[in-house]
Protein backbone atom coordinates (compact mmCIF):
# COMPACT_ATOMS: atom_id res chain seq x y z
CA UNK A 1 0.00 0.00 0.00
CA UNK A 2 1.44 3.33 -1.03
CA UNK A 3 1.69 5.98 1.68
CA UNK A 4 0.69 8.67 -0.80
CA UNK A 5 -2.70 7.06 -1.39
CA UNK A 6 -3.33 6.63 2.32
CA UNK A 7 -2.66 10.32 2.84
CA UNK A 8 -4.70 11.11 -0.23
CA UNK A 9 -7.60 9.20 1.34
CA UNK A 10 -7.17 11.12 4.59
CA UNK A 11 -7.13 14.24 2.45
CA UNK A 12 -10.52 13.33 1.01
CA UNK A 13 -11.86 12.87 4.54
CA UNK A 14 -10.45 16.25 5.60
CA UNK A 15 -11.93 17.73 2.44
CA UNK A 16 -15.34 16.52 3.59
CA UNK A 17 -14.89 18.26 6.93
CA UNK A 18 -13.60 21.44 5.33
CA UNK A 19 -16.36 21.42 2.71
CA UNK A 20 -19.10 21.35 5.36
CA UNK A 21 -17.55 24.20 7.32
CA UNK A 22 -16.42 26.26 4.32
CA UNK A 23 -19.87 26.17 2.76
CA UNK A 24 -21.34 27.59 5.94
CA UNK A 25 -18.69 30.26 6.19
CA UNK A 26 -19.07 31.35 2.59
CA UNK A 27 -22.87 31.56 2.94
CA UNK A 28 -22.36 33.96 5.83
CA UNK A 29 -19.69 35.94 3.95
CA UNK A 30 -22.22 36.49 1.22
CA UNK A 31 -24.44 38.60 3.46
CA UNK A 32 -21.87 40.30 5.71
CA UNK A 33 -18.87 42.42 4.83
CA UNK A 34 -16.80 41.26 7.77
CA UNK A 35 -15.05 38.05 8.67
CA UNK A 36 -16.31 36.02 11.59
CA UNK A 37 -13.31 34.98 13.67
CA UNK A 38 -15.60 33.04 16.00
CA UNK A 39 -16.52 30.57 13.23
CA UNK A 40 -13.95 28.04 14.49
CA UNK A 41 -15.65 28.20 17.87
CA UNK A 42 -19.04 27.60 16.24
CA UNK A 43 -17.52 24.39 14.86
CA UNK A 44 -16.12 23.48 18.25
CA UNK A 45 -19.50 24.11 19.84
CA UNK A 46 -21.08 21.53 17.53
CA UNK A 47 -18.66 18.84 18.65
CA UNK A 48 -18.87 19.84 22.32
CA UNK A 49 -22.69 19.85 22.36
CA UNK A 50 -22.62 16.44 20.70
CA UNK A 51 -20.26 15.28 23.43
CA UNK A 52 -22.60 16.71 26.07
CA UNK A 53 -25.68 14.96 24.65
CA UNK A 54 -23.74 11.80 23.98
CA UNK A 55 -21.72 11.48 27.22
CA UNK A 56 -23.00 13.92 29.82
CA UNK A 57 -26.78 14.42 29.54
CA UNK A 58 -29.42 12.13 28.03
CA UNK A 59 -26.70 9.72 26.83
CA UNK A 60 -28.06 9.82 23.35
CA UNK A 61 -26.66 7.68 20.60
CA UNK A 62 -23.94 9.64 18.75
CA UNK A 63 -25.83 9.61 15.45
CA UNK A 64 -28.86 11.13 17.15
CA UNK A 65 -26.90 13.57 19.29
CA UNK A 66 -24.93 14.96 16.32
CA UNK A 67 -27.81 16.43 14.30
CA UNK A 68 -29.46 17.86 17.42
CA UNK A 69 -26.17 19.54 18.37
CA UNK A 70 -25.75 20.94 14.85
CA UNK A 71 -29.25 22.42 14.93
CA UNK A 72 -28.49 23.99 18.32
CA UNK A 73 -25.38 25.62 16.84
CA UNK A 74 -27.55 26.98 14.03
CA UNK A 75 -29.90 28.53 16.59
CA UNK A 76 -26.92 29.86 18.52
CA UNK A 77 -25.56 31.49 15.32
CA UNK A 78 -28.89 33.25 14.70
CA UNK A 79 -28.97 34.53 18.27
CA UNK A 80 -25.32 35.61 18.20
CA UNK A 81 -25.99 37.55 15.02
CA UNK A 82 -29.22 39.13 16.23
CA UNK A 83 -27.98 40.13 19.66
CA UNK A 84 -24.36 40.91 18.99
CA UNK A 85 -22.91 40.99 15.51
CA UNK A 86 -25.72 42.60 13.51
CA UNK A 87 -26.16 45.56 15.90
CA UNK A 88 -22.43 46.30 15.80
CA UNK A 89 -22.24 45.89 12.03
CA UNK A 90 -25.19 48.28 11.64
CA UNK A 91 -23.76 50.87 13.98
CA UNK A 92 -20.11 50.90 12.92
CA UNK A 93 -19.38 51.09 9.22
CA UNK A 94 -15.78 50.05 9.74
CA UNK A 95 -15.67 46.25 9.24
CA UNK A 96 -12.48 45.99 11.30
CA UNK A 97 -14.51 46.90 14.41
CA UNK A 98 -17.03 44.14 13.76
CA UNK A 99 -14.16 41.72 13.22
CA UNK A 100 -12.80 42.69 16.63
CA UNK A 101 -16.26 42.01 18.05
CA UNK A 102 -16.15 38.52 16.51
CA UNK A 103 -12.68 38.12 17.99
CA UNK A 104 -14.25 38.85 21.34
CA UNK A 105 -16.98 36.28 20.66
CA UNK A 106 -14.29 33.72 19.89
CA UNK A 107 -12.45 34.49 23.13
CA UNK A 108 -15.70 34.38 25.08
CA UNK A 109 -16.84 31.05 23.60
CA UNK A 110 -13.44 29.39 23.94
CA UNK A 111 -13.06 30.37 27.60
CA UNK A 112 -16.60 29.50 28.60
CA UNK A 113 -16.19 26.16 26.82
CA UNK A 114 -12.99 25.57 28.78
CA UNK A 115 -14.84 26.19 32.03
CA UNK A 116 -17.61 23.75 31.06
CA UNK A 117 -15.64 21.03 29.27
CA UNK A 118 -12.11 21.57 30.72
CA UNK A 119 -9.00 21.58 28.59
CA UNK A 120 -8.80 17.77 28.48
CA UNK A 121 -9.09 15.56 25.42
CA UNK A 122 -12.65 14.22 25.10
CA UNK A 123 -14.00 11.16 23.31
CA UNK A 124 -17.45 10.43 21.93
CA UNK A 125 -19.21 7.41 23.39
CA UNK A 126 -19.38 5.26 20.27
CA UNK A 127 -17.95 1.92 19.15
CA UNK A 128 -14.32 2.07 18.14
CA UNK A 129 -14.16 2.22 14.41
CA UNK A 130 -11.20 0.38 12.91
CA UNK A 131 -9.56 1.56 9.69
CA UNK A 132 -10.37 -0.64 6.71
CA UNK A 133 -8.71 -0.99 3.36
CA UNK A 134 -10.86 0.53 0.65
CA UNK A 135 -9.02 0.31 -2.66
CA UNK A 136 -5.77 2.18 -2.12
CA UNK A 137 -7.22 4.12 0.82
CA UNK A 138 -7.47 3.46 4.54
CA UNK A 139 -10.71 4.67 6.10
CA UNK A 140 -12.71 3.82 9.19
CA UNK A 141 -16.44 3.18 8.67
CA UNK A 142 -17.27 6.31 10.68
CA UNK A 143 -15.09 8.45 8.44
CA UNK A 144 -16.76 6.93 5.39
CA UNK A 145 -20.17 7.82 6.81
CA UNK A 146 -18.94 11.37 7.39
CA UNK A 147 -17.71 11.60 3.80
CA UNK A 148 -20.92 10.24 2.39
CA UNK A 149 -22.90 12.59 4.58
CA UNK A 150 -20.82 15.57 3.43
CA UNK A 151 -21.51 14.73 -0.21
CA UNK A 152 -25.21 14.41 0.60
CA UNK A 153 -25.21 17.80 2.32
CA UNK A 154 -23.46 19.41 -0.64
CA UNK A 155 -26.09 18.03 -3.01
CA UNK A 156 -28.85 19.25 -0.72
CA UNK A 157 -27.35 22.73 -0.59
CA UNK A 158 -27.10 22.71 -4.37
CA UNK A 159 -30.78 21.78 -4.65
CA UNK A 160 -31.75 24.34 -2.05
CA UNK A 161 -29.94 27.20 -3.78
CA UNK A 162 -30.88 26.25 -7.32
CA UNK A 163 -34.44 24.97 -7.11
CA UNK A 164 -36.22 26.49 -4.12
CA UNK A 165 -37.64 29.98 -3.72
CA UNK A 166 -35.76 30.30 -0.43
CA UNK A 167 -32.49 29.46 -2.16
CA UNK A 168 -33.13 32.01 -4.89
CA UNK A 169 -33.79 34.67 -2.28
CA UNK A 170 -30.62 33.69 -0.42
CA UNK A 171 -28.61 34.05 -3.59
CA UNK A 172 -30.24 37.37 -4.41
CA UNK A 173 -29.41 38.70 -0.95
CA UNK A 174 -25.85 37.45 -1.21
CA UNK A 175 -25.29 38.90 -4.67
CA UNK A 176 -26.61 42.34 -3.97
CA UNK A 177 -27.85 43.34 -0.56
CA UNK A 178 -29.10 46.77 -1.54
CA UNK A 179 -30.97 45.47 -4.57
CA UNK A 180 -32.55 42.73 -2.50
CA UNK A 181 -33.69 45.35 0.00
CA UNK A 182 -35.74 47.07 -2.64
CA UNK A 183 -37.13 43.97 -4.31
CA UNK A 184 -39.51 42.90 -1.58
CA UNK A 185 -37.42 40.09 -0.14
CA UNK A 186 -37.83 39.73 3.60
CA UNK A 187 -34.19 40.49 4.31
CA UNK A 188 -34.44 39.89 8.04
CA UNK A 189 -35.88 36.44 7.57
CA UNK A 190 -33.42 35.41 4.86
CA UNK A 191 -30.55 36.74 6.98
CA UNK A 192 -31.72 34.59 9.86
CA UNK A 193 -32.03 31.54 7.62
CA UNK A 194 -28.54 32.14 6.26
CA UNK A 195 -27.05 32.47 9.73
CA UNK A 196 -28.89 29.32 10.82
CA UNK A 197 -27.50 27.40 7.85
CA UNK A 198 -24.07 28.80 8.51
CA UNK A 199 -24.18 27.71 12.14
CA UNK A 200 -25.65 24.33 11.24
CA UNK A 201 -22.89 23.64 8.73
CA UNK A 202 -20.25 24.89 11.19
CA UNK A 203 -21.63 22.48 13.78
CA UNK A 204 -21.65 19.59 11.31
CA UNK A 205 -18.11 20.47 10.24
CA UNK A 206 -16.93 20.51 13.86
CA UNK A 207 -18.56 17.17 14.59
CA UNK A 208 -17.09 15.69 11.41
CA UNK A 209 -13.66 16.98 12.44
CA UNK A 210 -13.96 15.29 15.83
CA UNK A 211 -15.02 12.02 14.17
CA UNK A 212 -12.14 12.19 11.73
CA UNK A 213 -9.62 12.92 14.49
CA UNK A 214 -11.37 10.41 16.81
CA UNK A 215 -11.25 12.90 19.70
CA UNK A 216 -11.80 16.57 20.49
CA UNK A 217 -10.64 19.38 22.72
CA UNK A 218 -12.27 22.77 23.24
CA UNK A 219 -9.75 24.38 20.91
CA UNK A 220 -9.15 21.71 18.25
CA UNK A 221 -11.60 23.28 15.78
CA UNK A 222 -10.22 26.78 16.31
CA UNK A 223 -6.93 25.87 14.67
CA UNK A 224 -8.84 24.83 11.55
CA UNK A 225 -10.39 28.28 11.14
CA UNK A 226 -7.79 29.46 8.69
CA UNK A 227 -7.85 26.20 6.79
CA UNK A 228 -11.56 26.84 6.28
CA UNK A 229 -10.79 30.45 5.27
CA UNK A 230 -8.28 29.12 2.77
CA UNK A 231 -10.95 26.97 1.12
CA UNK A 232 -13.39 29.88 1.04
CA UNK A 233 -10.87 32.30 -0.42
CA UNK A 234 -9.57 29.74 -2.90
CA UNK A 235 -13.09 29.30 -4.21
CA UNK A 236 -13.86 33.00 -4.26
CA UNK A 237 -15.38 34.63 -1.17
CA UNK A 238 -19.14 34.16 -1.13
CA UNK A 239 -19.20 31.42 -3.76
CA UNK A 240 -20.73 28.18 -2.50
CA UNK A 241 -19.49 25.94 -5.30
CA UNK A 242 -16.09 27.60 -5.13
CA UNK A 243 -15.93 26.76 -1.44
CA UNK A 244 -16.67 23.08 -2.19
CA UNK A 245 -13.88 22.95 -4.76
CA UNK A 246 -11.60 24.91 -2.47
CA UNK A 247 -12.29 22.43 0.31
CA UNK A 248 -11.29 19.52 -1.91
CA UNK A 249 -8.02 21.22 -2.84
CA UNK A 250 -7.23 22.27 0.73
CA UNK A 251 -8.08 18.85 2.18
CA UNK A 252 -5.80 17.06 -0.26
CA UNK A 253 -3.01 19.61 0.09
CA UNK A 254 -2.90 19.65 3.89
CA UNK A 255 -2.97 15.87 4.25
CA UNK A 256 -0.44 15.04 1.56
CA UNK A 257 1.88 17.89 2.59
CA UNK A 258 3.45 15.92 5.49
CA UNK A 259 4.91 13.56 2.87
CA UNK A 260 7.12 16.41 1.75
CA UNK A 261 7.42 18.86 4.65
CA UNK A 262 7.50 18.79 8.47
CA UNK A 263 4.06 17.59 9.64
CA UNK A 264 3.96 20.48 12.10
CA UNK A 265 3.44 22.77 9.14
CA UNK A 266 0.50 20.96 7.57
CA UNK A 267 -2.09 23.56 8.59
CA UNK A 268 0.27 26.32 7.49
CA UNK A 269 -0.30 25.18 3.93
CA UNK A 270 -3.78 26.63 4.34
CA UNK A 271 -2.53 29.83 6.01
CA UNK A 272 0.02 30.26 3.28
CA UNK A 273 -2.64 29.89 0.61
CA UNK A 274 -4.70 32.57 2.37
CA UNK A 275 -1.76 34.97 2.33
CA UNK A 276 -0.68 34.37 -1.25
CA UNK A 277 -4.19 34.35 -2.69
CA UNK A 278 -5.32 37.51 -0.94
CA UNK A 279 -2.14 39.22 -2.08
CA UNK A 280 -2.30 38.22 -5.69
CA UNK A 281 -5.78 36.97 -6.51
CA UNK A 282 -8.34 38.09 -3.93
CA UNK A 283 -11.24 37.20 -6.22
CA UNK A 284 -10.32 33.50 -5.85
CA UNK A 285 -9.32 30.94 -8.41
CA UNK A 286 -12.85 30.13 -9.53
CA UNK A 287 -14.32 33.16 -11.26
CA UNK A 288 -17.86 34.00 -10.21
CA UNK A 289 -19.95 34.06 -13.31
CA UNK A 290 -22.72 36.53 -13.85
CA UNK A 291 -21.29 39.08 -11.47
CA UNK A 292 -19.84 42.46 -12.12
Amino acid sequence: MHLFWIDFGTGLATAAVVALAATGLTLQFGITNYINFAYGDFMGLGALLTFALNNQAFHLNFWIAAPIAAILVGVFAVIANQLLLAPFARRFSNPALTMIVTFGLSLFMANVATVIWTGNTLFFRMPISVDKKVGPFLWSPDVMIVMGFAVLVMVMIHLLLKTTRLGKMMRALSDNTSLALTSGIDVRQITNVTWFMSGLLAGLGGIALAVEEANLTVTSAESYLFVIFAAVILGGIGSVYGAMLGALAIGLLTETAPLYINAGYKLDVGFFIVIVLLLFRPQGLVPRLGRS
Partner: peptide, 28 residues
Protein backbone atom coordinates in the same frame (compact mmCIF):
# COMPACT_ATOMS: atom_id res chain seq x y z
CA UNK B 1 4.93 43.95 1.40
CA UNK B 2 1.30 43.76 2.45
CA UNK B 3 0.14 47.38 2.36
CA UNK B 4 1.20 47.59 -1.26
CA UNK B 5 -1.64 45.52 -2.59
CA UNK B 6 -4.29 44.82 0.00
CA UNK B 7 -7.69 46.21 0.87
CA UNK B 8 -7.87 46.80 4.60
CA UNK B 9 -10.47 44.11 5.33
CA UNK B 10 -8.35 41.48 3.59
CA UNK B 11 -5.30 42.93 5.29
CA UNK B 12 -6.82 42.04 8.66
CA UNK B 13 -7.15 38.36 7.67
CA UNK B 14 -3.73 38.20 6.04
CA UNK B 15 -2.12 39.73 9.11
CA UNK B 16 -3.63 37.06 11.37
CA UNK B 17 -2.50 34.36 8.93
CA UNK B 18 1.05 35.76 8.89
CA UNK B 19 1.15 35.76 12.69
CA UNK B 20 -0.17 32.17 12.78
CA UNK B 21 2.42 30.95 10.25
CA UNK B 22 5.26 32.50 12.22
CA UNK B 23 3.87 31.14 15.48
CA UNK B 24 3.79 27.64 13.99
CA UNK B 25 7.28 28.20 12.69
CA UNK B 26 8.50 29.11 16.17
CA UNK B 27 7.03 25.84 17.46
CA UNK B 28 8.43 23.60 14.80
Amino acid sequence: VFMRRLRTDYLAVVMVAVALVIWDFSQN
